[in-house]
Design a protein around this nucleic acid. Structure first.
Lengths: 145, 145
DNA sequence: GATAAAAAGGATCTTGTTTATCCATTTATA
DNA sequence: TATAAATGGATAAACAAGATCCTTTTTATC
């Protein structure tokens, strides 16, 4: 049960953009180099992030990516669910009709609780906070330890 | 981010055994039929559960599976981690040395929190409770709705 | 307009994991 | 000793993840 590479890369990309001044565009190559993301894979990831409004893509020379929302309006949950779909640990917790047994059973209530908790935790973590922390520590940019 | 079939089947298997009187052995076919698990797949699942002591396997005629521990000593976390390995959402949360960037960053503390929460929730859910609930509701055995 | 930088979109490919099945071998009851 | 029942190893099929390549489209600037 783990974060996919696509999810990890997406977080790094949004985090990078969140550390820039408002409205600044960073090119795909710049982001890929800085955050250690395969260039062409980043293309696909950016397309998904763009479809859910988390980033904007600018084409043409001087093009690249920038945030589509202020970083305090973007949370880890947004990015994770964009890249990996809904978080659920058991079909029943989200799609009761797909369970061959009854779905009110005790097991499912545990999954629902787990799902709710993790979504809440990921929702509380905004990229404004994350970027601030990263900037303060000089992390993620080769300056820190 | 979801439970695998193997994880789901393992839970159903242990739940079935937990509803039986202490020490009772159920054959592989009985469990497979009752809980809608592919017979040969259940073999593999049982081997894993047996290696971590959750169930015991009895060979020969009248053989089958039974719990290796009292059901109040088995929790969802045990079964899930046996079948799916450690729960972690990000490499760094568990293996700091594998992260190419610094691992004290703010993102990782969020993953650590999420991981801790879900493990706690799954640890609290024992099969004694789960089986009791299932028996009370006549669920999981075709008698309920 | 023409040029060129930069991203899109589609196709493909590799790799790994999950799920499932088959069969010869081992175990142990009666 | 015969037989019921599970093991263990091998293999296959299905699917998802990760990565890469190439042609087309967009658009800033000369």
């Amino acid at each position: 049960m783990r974060l996919t590479k696509a999810g990890e890369y997406a977080i790094r990309c949004v985090l990078y953009l969140s550390t820039l001044a408002k409205g600044i565009v960073a090119s795909r190559n710049e982001i890929a180099d800085a955050m250690d993301i395969p260039r062409d894979f980043l293309t696909k990831i950016a397309q998904q992030l763009s479809r859910s409004g988390i980033i904007e893509i600018i084409q043409g020379p001087k093009g690249g990516f920038r945030l589509g929302l202020p970083p305090e309006k973007i949370c880890l949950l947004d990015v994770v669910e964009t890249m990996m779909g809904d978080i659920f640990f058991n079909e029943c917790a989200l799609r009761p009709q797909s369970c061959s047994k009854s779905c009110t059973c005790a097991v499912h209530t545990v999954w629902v609780k787990a799902r709710t908790q993790i979504r809440e935790t990921l929702r509380e973590a905004t990229f404004a906070q994350l970027a601030e922390d990263v900037k303060n520590r000089d992390l993620y940019f080769g300056k820190g330890s």
